[in-house]
Design a protein around this nucleic acid. Structure first.
Length: 485
RNA sequence: GCUCCCAUCGUCUAGCGGUCUAGGACGUCGCCCUCUCACGGCGAAAACAGGGGUUCGAGUCCCCUUGGGAGCGCCA
């Protein structure tokens, strides 16, 4: 259903850490909904917790959104900067009787909760200052300001995802709007900011569902309209438990370093909790055209790396060679050192990578795998053999290598077609299977048991390097195979 | 403990009372292709949590049980 008024959504992370995967999906949903209906997505940083908010977290969130390709409209709103306005709103509430001063001490509050729990009652503030005369206020004590919430009737949220959710007002207590130190609480700040920013549709994690009820009461006290709500189930780890750092609660920057493409992550995320019939693959435009709140599921989804990898492989195969080489280049500062590579691609390596990319990208699921599978292009000399290559190169294989070496050296044209023709002819002559010759050659030339097509590899490596590597393995007896150091 | 939410293959999901002997995707397992590994193609195993209702008819609606999850701060 298309909203009647212009749509305004917002993504409102608190900058106490990186942009995690659940936040990324929430941002994506907000972004898609705004784009779908020609509206705007605003970005608000909820930095009212001065202790835990950091500049680096803000930077990480902004970077993460940009990397994912999610842009926001207008300037970033910083919630802390709006504290004055929040206090002003509380003043009006105090004036109309919608709020009152509460002098209960933290000790009293703790006692209240403990007693409630002991007696099996819901833990809530008992309203002891709700109707007390201000003259009874302890001298010099700074009060917190609480909402005078309705005590009868019910509070209802018509949620686009969860449906109609009802709370009995007797189960909800008088929440704090302004702390005794004069700072606004989150509950108040969200309401005022969403209202002032003209937010028409709130889309957020369903850990906020119960907050929605309390916020609705604030809206009502203020005489403001409540925005439409959509509470999206959280993402769980593979074990069904809450996402932890071990399995998926990584920052989006970590996914970047793991070698995932933004397009793949977007596609994976959009299908986590949302569906459009049987469609699995979505270009950015397709997502926007198809997205709506009604197709979001109500049950939590588990994060599955295997599916993300599959999707990533798909998007890599789809990518043009040039952009994959660029993507590897951007990852080199973090991936290079461990692989004996500098922070930048040398022109020579870049060239070989580009020529090899059609064969390479077919076989890798991530950019990291892509770089590792190209090992033979940048391997230092002497080439290290992995276990598989080592086992392929037994005495018989090395002997065959010797025979093939001379024949390869004689081929006039060093290109894939000519090399293949020469080897095939040799196989036919000797009655060997192609694999009996190709596998030892592959092991000698790449140091691995698997690689892109052998003849393309040899063409790109060039005559000199290829023959040198074959020589290193063909000579038996006096030269031991080099094992990975 | 209290309040609220949820429940289809291992995983993501389609299904919005009859077209469901439940469909797709990932993963898994076979086979084909093949110089290896991938890709691709073909095929297989794999689910409506349990119990009551409602209805001519229930995966689809209602209730209970069980099992998950979230929230219960002068955190956000």
């Amino acid at each position: 259903m298309a909203p009647s008024a212009p749509v305004v959504t917002r993504f409102a992370p608190s900058p106490t850490g990186f942009l995690h995967i659940g936040g990324a999906r929430t941002a994506l949903f907000n972004w898609l909904y705004a784009r779908r209906f020609g509206g705007a997505m605003l970005l608000r940083i909820e930095d009212t917790d001065r202790e835990r908010s950091t500049e680096s977290a803000i930077a990480a969130i902004l970077d993460g959104l940009s990397w994912l390709g999610l842009d926001w409209d207008g300037d970033v709103v910083y919630q802390f900067a709006r504290a004055e306005r929040h206090r002003e709103v509380v003043e009006t509430l105090l004036a109309t009787g919608g709020a009152y001063r509460c002098y209960a001490t933290p000790e009293e509050l703790a006692e209240m909760r403990e007693a409630a729990r002991r007696e099996g009652r819901p833990a809530r503030y008992d309203g002891r200052w709700r109707d007390r005369d201000p003259s009874e206020a302890p001298a010099g004590a700074k009060p917190a300001i609480r909402l005078r919430a309705p005590q009868e009737g019910e509070t209802v949220i018509e949620d686009a995802v969860q449906g109609r959710v009802v709370w009995q007002n007797k189960d909800l207590d008088d929440l704090v709007l302004l702390r005794s130190d004069g700072n606004p609480t989150y509950m108040l700040a969200v309401v005022v900011d969403d209202h002032d920013m003209g937010v028409t549709q709130v889309i957020r994690g369903d850990d906020h569902l119960t907050n929605a009820a309390r916020q609705a009461q604030i809206y009502q006290a203020l005489g403001w309209g409540v925005p439409r709500m959509a509470h999206v189930p959280l993402i769980h780890g593979p074990d069904g438990a809450k996402l932890s750092k071990r399995h998926g609660a990584l920052g989006v920057d970590a996914y970047r370093e793991l070698g995932y493409l933004p397009a793949a992550l977007r596609n994976y995320l959009v299908r986590l909790g949302w569906s459009h019939g049987d469609q699995e693959m979505f270009s950015q435009d397709e997502m926007i055209a198809a997205f709506d709140l009604g197709q979001i599921g109500r049950s939590p989804a588990r994060f599955d790396f295997a599916k993300l990898e599959n999707l990533n492989g798909h998007y890599m195969r789809q990518s043009d060679d040039e952009s994959l080489v660029e993507a590897i280049g951007r990852l080199l500062p973090t991936l290079g050192p461990a692989r004996g590579l500098g922070p930048e691609l040398t022109p020579a390596l870049r060239g070989m990578l580009l020529r090899s990319m059609p064969g390479l990208k077919e076989r890798a699921k991530t950019l990291v795998e892509l770089l590792d599978s190209a090992y033979y292009l940048y391997a230092p000399s002497p080439l290290a053999l992995d276990a598989k290559a080592d086992s392929i190169l037994d005495a018989a294989a090395r002997a065959r290598l010797g025979a093939v070496r001379a024949l390869l050296a004689e081929t006039a044209e060093w290109n894939a077609a000519a090399l293949e023709a020469a080897i095939r002819a040799h196989a036919e002559r000797t009655g060997l299977k192609l694999g009996q010759i190709a596998q030892p050659l592959r092991a000698a030339v790449t140091g691995r048991g698997t690689s892109p097509g052998l003849f393309e590899v040899m063409e790109i490596l060039g005559r000199e390097t290829s023959l040198a590597r074959i020589d290193a393995q063909a000579r038996t007896g006096d030269t031991a195979p080099m094992n990975a150091a």
